[in-house]
Design a protein around this nucleic acid. Sequence first.
DNA 1: CGGCTTCTTGAGCCATGTCAATCCCGGTGG
DNA 2: CCACCGGGATTGACATGGCTCAAGAAGCCG
Lengths: 227, 227
Amino acid sequence: MSCLHLPLGLPLDDIPELHDTETFTLLRKDETLFEQCAPFTGLFLVRSGSLKQVSTMNGGDPLVMAYAMPGDLVGLDAIGPDVYPGTAVALETLTVSVLSRERIGELGAQAPELRQQLCRNLSQEVHNERLMLRSLLHRTAVGRLAYFFVAMSARFRRRGYSPIQFRLALSRSDIGSYLGLTVETVSRTLARFQQQELLKASGRDFHILDLDGLIRLAESSGRRGRG
Amino acid sequence: MSCLHLPLGLPLDDIPELHDTETFTLLRKDETLFEQCAPFTGLFLVRSGSLKQVSTMNGGDPLVMAYAMPGDLVGLDAIGPDVYPGTAVALETLTVSVLSRERIGELGAQAPELRQQLCRNLSQEVHNERLMLRSLLHRTAVGRLAYFFVAMSARFRRRGYSPIQFRLALSRSDIGSYLGLTVETVSRTLARFQQQELLKASGRDFHILDLDGLIRLAESSGRRGRG
DNA sequence: CGGCTTCTTGAGCCATGTCAATCCCGGTGG
DNA sequence: CCACCGGGATTGACATGGCTCAAGAAGCCG
């Protein structure tokens, strides 16, 4: 289960230029960093706070596609299409630094190995996404949520935060959308997790009590689809 | 619904070097091109026949992750991890041409814009996968299968084959695994599609009768998860 | 024609979506 | 400081989609 970090959690810290950027932007809760379909202008590195990326399909409801926390790079999935494939909404007060399209071009020209590194990361990402989402497809609500918390725990750990106690700015219904479940199911399942002393949730603060238990739940394949 | 092509269907035809390769390999049904966890040795371009890529999670059942048809490039998701993240199994007699790791390096060095192009494709891919899988997460069996056939139809069209009549070498249970459904559900749902004259299936040959109807089904969000 | 695998069909049950009521919490105004 | 209000969260009752188990039909190859 090495690949549990979620979508935008690319390990690009090793690209120093990314940290030199001086352009900072501040957003308040519910403000957007960019809108779906807006032309690609650059990448964003989250400094503090968090955001969700929401995509609306042809006449469907908006889906929460990704959750970005400090250290995450946002906008990578806009490089190919050349427009942002979803709207980025601040979940709380948020600061990001901007890496403009032009700057990316310069950097790519100067250091080809940077682009190579980016390729690697993207390739890794394709694989991670596939693996995560395909296994979610086969899991029940319990499995999906367990997976979600294990993944979040791993992500916080990699970022240097506590892997067992953290705050998720996502609402229950965001989590539901992210996992393909209804709010009610999320809520009920969380209640069960707490009864079983797997974790403690108060509002948006979570405390993992039994990570191994959650991992076991996440791996014990839920029932859907045998082959 | 521009992004309906499936995982490995990258539009890399514009990279001419890929077609110059002389190294051909032939495999018979059920033989494998590479095994999961084998070190990355190169990419493969499918010439004829088809294959499925299957990943086994930590102690789970194997999941069908991708289906590759002639013109598809296989192995892109191995670049990042440097090992193949799944086993590639021939579904029928199969010929591929090999693009070795070394050759990729050379090409990348000669033509930097090629690598850039690869980046774009990978980025696009991240987005496509996300979109497809997240929306599958929210759909019922009907929606998933409809989506699947619409996607396949689009893929065959892009490859220059008939978009309404094609053969899928995948078994019902492969399709189920790919979509997160059981064989039985796939079978029953296909039966309903035929009653409603949306398509005709005989064995592994499919004939789309009402593509618009399928698109409508695929888009009319199945019920799971409202937000 | 027999043996294998794949596909289809049926009956029953459980998980989860739906609908609806209530609760909780944070903010706002009196 | 308290009453009110609104959005999110929880909980309950119910309906149903899809998984399970099981049997049979249809291909496929010898």
